[in-house]
Design a protein around this nucleic acid. Structure first.
Lengths: 138, 138
DNA sequence: ATTTAATTATATCAATTTGGTATAGTTAAA
DNA sequence: TTTAACTATACCAAATTGATATAATTAAAT
């Protein structure tokens, strides 16, 4: 019932890129965020795949955010690393049922779990990286 | 970023006891909730230890809720099985810092993670088992 | 007292997830 | 052509999770 270490690192990496406002290579990011280079590379790969980060190969290559920090939310990063959030396995990512308890393929908790998941998702969507940087300054 | 299978079972077990309004033995509960007897016993042990459920040994023994369903929330059950909820390991259960990033032992995310954790906790505290049973009937 | 039907404590174990590493290959600027 | 980057794939070990086993304890009923 918490984000994984890997996701925590991912949040810090995105934060680092957001603050840098420049292309950064994996080595620099990993040193600044105190995450091993190889693990950073793995996480950066996931962030690239999900479209949050753009990568540039070759000499002078590196990583940049692919859109403005204000358009990247905590939910985006969590989803990129862990997949779609849901409270219980018994519900699908879209809120539809996945468990088969009860004759109707439905159970007492599907709606409740779905509602809570959706509220938590809204929470996570409400925090973007421009805000995070802004808040830090105050 | 979701509740474990064990917690999901625990929620169903508490729900079962809440609906029964009578002393139930582990075998009956486990059959009704489709959880193996032994695993049910383990979960019931945690619920007893946390004070949600009362146990009675010996012949005609079994389990009952130790207080009214309306006074048992989803958060109570999740905490009983998984321990206190927090979004990231980098914050303590009380919201105090546990990580040591940054010179001051503080980091850009401690406040944000703490705020979100506390909101999610409020969500989970807002759902009690009397409501769950009530909702099901409509 | 004895039997029986229950819980309890402790220990163990296998499967899954998580955290982290290694290697070989690809790309593009200089 | 060299070099400094990223990429894809695979692998492995530690931690967590899900589940089981055994032996002991308890209390009602006979």
């Amino acid at each position: 019932m918490h984000i994984t270490q890997e996701t925590d690192y991912a949040v810090r990496i995105v934060y680092c890129l957001a603050k840098s406002e420049a292309r950064r290579d994996a080595r620099g990011i990993s040193e600044e965020m105190c995450v091993t280079l190889r693990f950073s590379l793995k996480i950066l790969g996931k962030l690239v795949q999900s479209g949050i980060v753009a990568s540039y190969k070759g000499n002078k290559g590196g990583y940049e955010l692919s859109r403005s920090p204000k358009d990247i939310t905590l939910k985006d990063v969590i989803t990129a690393v862990e997949g779609e959030y849901k409270l219980s396995r018994c519900i699908g990512a879209d809120g539809a049922g996945e468990c088969n308890r009860g004759a109707s393929g439905c159970c007492a908790f599907q709606k409740i779990f779905t509602d809570i998941s959706s509220n938590i998702n809204k929470q996570l969507e409400g925090v973007n990286f421009a805000d995070i940087i802004q808040n830090e300054k105050t």
